[in-house]
Amino acid sequence: MRFFLPVLFFIFSLSYGYEDFVQYEKGYYYVVITKGSFKNVNSKLLEEIRIQGWDVIHTINVDKTTKMKSPYKTHLLCKAKYLKEGVKKFRPIGVIIPCKMAIFVEGNKIKIMVEDVSEYADIYAPEDQEFKKFMLKVRDELIGILNRTAGRFMKSRYTPYE
C-alpha cells in the first residue's frame, strides 16, 4: 500500500497534465514562461482554455486601457457545465463569476495568473462542503490550464513557491 499510493498519484498527475510549473502566492496561482512571444503564449493559452471546454466571454486589454507599453490582458472565463452545476449548489454564484485569468509581460518573462477560486467557498458559504468541493474542482481545472500552457513552452519543472 505504501508503494501503491505514490504510484497512483503519479499516474493521476500525468493523466491530467499536472506538473510542477504552477506556483502559488497571495490568493493566486501562476506560471512564468521564459521562452516565446507574448502573442504566441497568449494564443496557446486561449487554445488550451477552449480545449478544456471553457469560453472566454470577454478580454480586458489592460495594457490599452492603462496605456502600458508592455502587453497585459485579463481573460474572463466561464464554463457552462460548471455554471449550471454551481447555481444548484450556491444560487448567488453570479457574484463570483466569471473566473479571471491574467497574462502579462514582466521583465523578459511572461506571467499567467489565475485567482484561487476555492477561497470563495470559505468567504460565501463556509459551512457548505458540497460548494467547497465544487470550487476545488474548478480551481484544479484552472490550474491544469496553467500547467498545460506552460508545458507547451518549457521542459524543466519549477519548484513550488513556499
Rank of each mutant, 00 (worst) to 15 (best):
G53C: 08
V7I: 15
Q52W: 07
M113Y: 05
I103W: 06
A125F: 11
K88P: 04
K81V: 12
L77A: 08
P71W: 09
Y72E: 10
V32A: 07
A80P: 13
K155Y: 01
I112F: 01
K132W: 14
N40V: 01
D122R: 00
Y72S: 11
C78W: 04
T65D: 12
E115M: 12
K67F: 15
Y82I: 08
L136H: 07
S13R: 10
R91D: 00
N108W: 12
T65R: 11
I93K: 06
F38T: 00
I96K: 01
K84D: 13
V114A: 03
V22R: 01
A80S: 15
Y30L: 02
V117G: 05
F134Y: 06
M113R: 06
P92K: 02
N61S: 02
G151P: 05
F9Y: 05
K67W: 13
Y82P: 12
P71N: 02
P160Q: 09
L142Q: 07
L142T: 15
Y120G: 03
R91Y: 09
G27I: 06
L76F: 15
E106F: 13
Y28T: 00
I96T: 02
R139A: 05
L46M: 15
A121R: 01
R50W: 12
S118Q: 14
I145Y: 14
L45N: 14
V41H: 08
I145A: 06
F10I: 02
K73H: 14
S156D: 03
E130Y: 10
P71Y: 09
T65A: 07
S118A: 11
N40S: 08
K89A: 02
I51R: 07
V117K: 12
D55H: 01
D55V: 06
M113D: 09
F134E: 04
I49W: 12
F104A: 06
D63H: 14
R2D: 10
Y161L: 04
L142A: 11
F12Y: 10
T59E: 07
S43K: 08
C99A: 03
P71M: 04
L8T: 05
I93V: 04
V87C: 04
L136C: 02
N42C: 07
E48L: 09
L8I: 09
F4M: 13
K133V: 00
P98K: 05
M135G: 10
F10S: 01
